[in-house]
């Protein structure tokens, strides 16, 4: 076992339930590397919904809440509201975050709550057997779209930017170093951080969308198709070629929700002490 794993993983839960060659294990490692470098393991609180990627947090020796499908972000907001000193990280998948939990993503980003949402995107509902997801590319044949998908895909990063997230990144599992760096940035960032990770799923995405269930093929596909481009004006050009722009897209400072709540409480208390009602 890797030294990082020896230090942070729950040994009685191992081996990982992920399929051979799944990218989720690499995300566990990249996240643990970031946590190890920052030394913030005791401050962490994780939440997870349902899906393969929701299991990422379960193997780490930190506090975790596993909740209903799509409701990982509200649970994380609850933790943050009751204990603002915690670093709250949510692991969700593309179905969990964009389909069932889509509204929660929008409103958490809008309020700029200090938390990190890690969305693992494998372009399909993998755990349930390969159904079409909001992130599935147009024209792909899945279990529920045998004649090709006719729905346009939803881009998580663009949604997060539009909704008002203050840190947005997208990397793939083929770039673990950059991914670790993005995790570190997100954990230190004060505000809503959204990291989308393009991950390989040899069993479902590979077999039905890309045409090969070999982990090596899927890994190489990610390497070839993820192009670093942080300028939004050039994304359309890259997407037209069927490729995926990756990079650290956005990092800005804005008032954080829990701090605003504390400030409001303070203001009301002061006003009441003076005799007014608000």
């Amino acid at each position: 076992m890797n030294p990082l794993g020896e230090k942070y993983l729950r040994k009685d839960f191992l081996p990982f339930l992920f399929c051979p060659g799944c990218g989720d294990g690499m995300i566990v490692q990249a996240f643990l590397q970031a946590v190890d470098d920052l030394g913030c393991v005791d401050d962490l609180a994780l939440t997870a919904g349902i899906g393969c990627s929701a299991w990422i947090g379960v193997y780490m020796h930190v506090d975790i809440l596993k909740v209903l499908h799509g409701r990982a972000i509200p649970a994380a907001i609850g933790i943050k509201a009751t204990n603002p000193s915690r670093k709250v990280v949510t692991f969700t998948g593309d179905g969990d975050c964009l389909a069932i939990g889509g509204n929660h993503l929008l409103h958490a980003a809008r309020r700029n709550i200090d938390m990190t949402v890690v969305m693992v995107n494998n372009q399909i509902y993998a755990m349930t057997g390969g159904q079409v997801a909001p992130s599935t590319v147009v024209g792909s044949k899945t279990q529920t779209t045998p004649y090709g998908n006719i729905e346009k895909q939803l881009d998580g990063c663009k949604v997060a930017i539009a909704a008002g997230a203050t840190m947005v990144s997208r990397w793939s599992t083929a770039q673990p170093k950059q991914l670790t760096r993005a995790f570190k940035k997100a954990l230190n960032h004060k505000g809503f951080s959204f990291i989308e990770i393009m991950s390989q799923c040899p069993v479902q995405t590979g077999r039905y969308l890309l045409g090969s269930s070999s982990p090596q093929f899927n890994f190489q596909w990610l390497k070839d198709h993820c192009v670093k481009e942080e300028d939004p004006s050039k994304w359309a050009e890259i997407e037209a070629q069927g490729k995926i722009p990756v990079g650290d897209f956005l990092q800005i400072e804005q008032p954080e929700f829990m701090e605003e709540v504390a400030r409001m409480n303070q203001r009301v208390k002061e006003a009441q002490a003076k005799g007014g009602d608000r």
Binding site: N2, G5, L9, G25
Partner: peptide, 11 residues
């Protein structure tokens, strides 16, 4: 190899 192992079994 250590960094890319999905099962964290390489040292």
């Amino acid at each position: 190899c250590e960094m890319h192992c999905p099962d964290m079994c390489m040292t």
